[in-house]
Design a protein around this nucleic acid. Sequence first.
DNA 1: CGGCGAGAGTTAAGTGGTTAAGCGGACCGG
DNA 2: CCGGTCCGCTTAACCACTTAACTCTCGCCG
Lengths: 338, 338
Amino acid sequence: MKRPTIADIARRAGVSKVAVSYALNDRPGVSEARRNTIKAIAREIGWQPNSAARALNGARARAVGLTVCRPARVLGMEPFFMELISGIESELSARSYALLLQMVTGHAQETEVYRRWWGEGRVDGVILVDLHFDDPRVPEIEDMALPAVVIGHPSETGSLAPVWSDDGAAMRETVEYLAALGHRRVARVAGLPALVHTVLRDRAFAAACDELGLTHSVAHTDYTGEEGARATRRLVSGANRPTAIVYDNDIMAVAGLSVAQEMRLEVPADLSLVAWDDSPLSQVVRPALTALGRDIPHYGAQAARSLLALIAGEHVAGVQTETARLTPRGSTGAPGHR
Amino acid sequence: MKRPTIADIARRAGVSKVAVSYALNDRPGVSEARRNTIKAIAREIGWQPNSAARALNGARARAVGLTVCRPARVLGMEPFFMELISGIESELSARSYALLLQMVTGHAQETEVYRRWWGEGRVDGVILVDLHFDDPRVPEIEDMALPAVVIGHPSETGSLAPVWSDDGAAMRETVEYLAALGHRRVARVAGLPALVHTVLRDRAFAAACDELGLTHSVAHTDYTGEEGARATRRLVSGANRPTAIVYDNDIMAVAGLSVAQEMRLEVPADLSLVAWDDSPLSQVVRPALTALGRDIPHYGAQAARSLLALIAGEHVAGVQTETARLTPRGSTGAPGHR
DNA sequence: CGGCGAGAGTTAAGTGGTTAAGCGGACCGG
DNA sequence: CCGGTCCGCTTAACCACTTAACTCTCGCCG
């Protein structure tokens, strides 16, 4: 009841193992007739190439790795990751590449996992997410000479191939939109300040506000609804309450919406809300949330494509994906207009 | 710049490859002194066992597989999967097992993926989710003799090891709770009717309602917010509008809440809402949603543990995990009571 | 002082597949 | 009729590591 090997096929076909190998890999050295019988036998007995044996001959492992460093509860609420993974997958499975996934608790464990996977020959490359400033993973992976794609801004990815989108431009567009509606005091409820994209958004937000003469403030959170709610409460109960808030994800924006309703603030008359990342959630609440949407699966697919090219030995330039598009919905409007 | 192998270590230590193999695997046949020097060298040059070479000697692949069959958009909104994966992971990574993940488009592709993974020797076992009635995957996997754990009710898992929770009991508790509040007309917005757990919940819902003398109705959806909203609209605009609705996930419950507010129905006075699966989302909306919560990561961890035991050759009985707990919040109350 | 057993190491063989090199026979041109 | 060449296949070697079997040395005991 063992798994069939090419030796079994060879015995059945009355040829050597090598002839079978040539036949199954569509390389010259076997007659067409023989190739066909061999393939027929292989199909009949359900032969599958043993990936370990192939990998041993210097072949690719045909797998890429991804680690994710977020607590389970947060991760569940973040459509981003699942959609990203889904996009990565679409590209990988088309080429029969497998995805190895591991949850980790920190950067140290993450590089350790990469080192093991790479050393064990389990993966041909990895995808890095949640880029930090001076990210320790970058030099470590460069040192390992492990093919890698980083989802994050090129300024911090060292020699690794970046895949990114211009969050600054999207932020500018959003602030301009709010200013055009008549807002003069705006705020931002941001994610983890250690992440590169958080800071880039922070900067773009501040720069755009300054340019347009808006007063602005920022609160950093851990992306959870609770912190989003807390930050919103703090912002709207302070002096000089903002008339618009831009959130770094949709769960916080929904939390903010609830807080506003709790505090009897009319949305959007008293407070306008914008969510970054446009999931079905944004459209399901009332009023629906104005959101910065982008095609996240496509983003993941792009990263996977770059990585596969890199693995194939091609030179890969950084790839900039589409900028998030602002979709105005009911949660934004002119301030004070009922 | 090649990866170091035991041959490199052997050369450095001035012994044979075999001595190195024995030393590194902590098996007798090498002196303690030599074992230590060998281990020191291995650490120094950063040696990692090549998993392919090990696998070739009949060793385990030290990986398990999981496929998920849902469109990206739905998946992103389903905290269930990410939390489940997170729980599976926690158990696997503790034993240095890897998780292979693949998105598929249907059962046919799914068994094909399993067959390939198993044939290629990439995985030692798999975890099945989204069990259907007469699920074609069950006999296929039995036939392959591939170790597998099924997340689903034991009545449909054949000889495969089930990991399940008693949704019927949770549903009964919920209906009893609603009846005690004074509800007489209740409805249920369910998930995909092809899934075993949907039908089991349907049955338990109907049985409990009949027993308590409540009129009841059910609408089936695909778990998306849009369908949840549609179903809600249909239910509340019909004659004999229900005073309470139980949803099969939280995104639909949130959508239902928005519909209620849109239609100027007071929650919970005019309409009480209950969500199955208690994510942060339930607590972030106003009023907060009464929800049926359970520890999903724990559920996943349990499945992983069972699978690892199965792979280790142990006999594994089905495991029943905790029943979902009802957490009453602001979205439920006595009908008509303002 | 010879034999015996245990400990520490060795060599040989195998895992499933790939790759390079070799080797007969047919076929062809000179 | 002979040398060259291509076809179709085989044998040998290798990938990194494991396992079995074997050798050698040393200490101990009768």
